[in-house]
Design a protein around this nucleic acid. Structure first.
Lengths: 241, 241
DNA sequence: ACCTGAACACCGTTCAAGT
DNA sequence: ACCTGAACACCGTTCAAGT
């Protein structure tokens, strides 16, 4: 068998949740043996390369050249595994968000960072809405909330404001994730949009007049811009208080 | 065997999607034989009584005193079955929403109707976010959009505005559904809230200051009011344009 | 036309047995 | 302490065979 693991760097003593420390990146433990880090990395590879449906303990064990049961020594179950992969990616996203002087721009930056991350890894969107209490969602909530605090939001409205923004982001995230999940692997955004438009066009215009009106705007429609427009509505509404 | 089905009322010729006509309630077909209506009704019973996890084709077949394969004669697959159950409940919700003169109140009414419906049938929340293109979501989008049209929203912002409201609703819906799904069956809202608070309290205050600040507000926190506060932020933001 | 239920190809998870 | 992989108790879906 391979040599045993060597701890290259000491672990931070930050709170761990979902089996992942979010603050620093310096908790790496290099080893050839199975470890939570290696399992999470392999899981992310499968999720990114082959989609949500491809992540099974058997596939993961195959990729790690081990038995399916071995994974359970390091990870309690599939929920924890998915929470840990999501935490890892969200932590990466948060570190990559550029700093802004204006808290409003900061919130837009977080929102766009999440939007793009879900575009790249649609499975995150599913996971965030599947386990609301997971660490990744807490991180998102904290990041948004701390930016809101820097605005002149009344203390009594802070919780509501952060919750509004977070729920909106989670909603858009899960819808995008589901669209990616349900579409054939090779389908691009334009054809997916065309398919949706076709489906809407088949509805009775007398019964769905608004849908039919919006249909005309679909071709020049930009998901990302529309997502940001929603953020701006909420920010404006919060400021208007 | 029982006598064959008798069509008591003619079916409406409205567009059918997810196997359910949404407009009128008069497409009922009374019969003792298996039918899409009976299957959907039984599925809703299982979902309501025993939760999302309990709806399997085997459980459904048992309740309908038939074989699992028989269901496939009337319903293409589980996705279609779930879309149909969700459509049925959402249509019921929309019919029950009280009429308002103010379109803003109309939107609040729709939102609260959906919130309460998801409180009663948490599985709807999961399903709405699992299949974005399903009819139930189109109905929600249409209802919101038509109310927005009655406001003085610029034509160019209508799509964005409806999308913002819908995404927010979908986000809150899926989070509520997931919380209900992950909590033990007999747990009430207060203890679930206390559990979430406990989990938050365990986090490092230095790393999650906003979460800790909000923690103090959790006891007097009302999910439903907070949900409505989010709707009002978005409505205010839309009006501010 | 509609129903039956065994069979197929999967799952997540457990656990005795190994090293 | 950690790993192996067969076994268990499920799934959704199909399909030959019945009526």
């Amino acid at each position: 068998m391979e040599p045993r693991s060597i701890i290259l760097e000491h672990r931070s003593n930050h709170v761990k949740m979902d089996g992942v420390a979010v603050t620093t990146g310096r908790s790496a433990r290099r080893t050839d043996a199975l470890s939570q880090e290696r399992i999470i990395a392999a899981a992310i590879e499968i999720l990114d390369d082959e989609g949500e449906g491809a992540l099974t303990f058997r596939a993961l064990a195959r990729r790690l050249s081990t038995g399916a049961g071995a994974i359970y020594w390091h990870v309690a179950n599939k929920d924890e595994l998915l929470a840990a992969t999501t935490s890892a990616v969200i932590a990466r996203v948060m570190r990559a968000v550029p700093r802004h002087d204006d808290p409003r721009d900061g919130i837009r930056g977080i929102a766009l960072g999440l939007f793009d991350a879900i575009d790249d890894h649609p499975w995150i969107g599913s996971e965030l809405s599947r386990q609301p209490l997971q660490l990744a969602n807490t991180v998102i909530f904290e990041e948004i909330g701390s930016k809101l605090q820097a605005l002149d939001v009344a203390a009594g409205s802070l919780f509501d404001a952060a919750s509004a923004l977070a729920n909106y982001i989670w909603g858009a995230a899960s819808q995008n994730a589901a669209n990616a999940r349900n579409a054939p692997r090779d389908m691009d955004r334009a054809t997916a949009l065309a398919l949706a438009a076709e489906r809407w066009a088949a509805l009775d215009p007398a019964e769905y007049p608004f849908v039919h009106q919006v249909l005309a705007q679909l071709p020049e429609h930009d998901d990302r811009e529309q997502f940001l427009a929603g953020i701006d509505f909420i920010l404006a509404g919060i400021a208007g208080r």
